[in-house]
């Protein structure tokens, strides 16, 4: 059965920094795809990446868990995982879980890349 959840991840390169642009709802059924994309970056030798969540309308604890795993992996390699969050609904989820203290969060992909 095809998933009915609106979700897409596209990868691009921004000034040498891999940028994963996520769109739609990131939940228990779609988070594994994001996990695979982050893992592929790490295994491909990338140590710093940006995940753009500005087009994301929903995240749950499984999505947050994937991002936490990603940032741990990249920081262990000396890099970082930076996030772009613009939607108040998504910001709120990071705030109530205390993850604003874990991630570096930026208002645009450009700022995240330049950081």
């Amino acid at each position: 059965m095809a998933t009915e959840v609106n979700f897409e991840v596209t990868e691009s390169d921004r000034d040498g920094v891999p940028l994963l642009s996520v769109r739609g709802e990131v939940d228990v059924s779609t988070a594994p795809e994001l996990r695979e994309r982050l893992l592929a970056l790490a295994e491909g030798g990338k140590t710093t990446a940006v995940v753009d969540l500005s087009e994301v309308s929903f995240v749950d604890s499984t999505a947050l868990g994937v991002l936490v795993s990603g940032v741990k992996r990249l920081r262990s390699e000396g890099g970082d995982l930076r996030l772009v969050v613009t939607e108040p609904r998504i910001s709120k989820v990071f705030e109530i879980t205390g993850l604003t203290d874990v991630f570096k969060i930026y208002p645009s992909a450009d700022e995240a890349v330049r950081a």
């Binding site: 604890s61 947050l64 936490v68 205390g98 993850l99």
Partner: peptide
């Protein structure tokens, strides 16, 4: 709760 993050979400919301 599925994990610690899930518990925090429920506690907050």
């Amino acid at each position: 709760p599925a994990n610690e993050l899930s518990a925090r979400i429920l506690d907050a919301l």
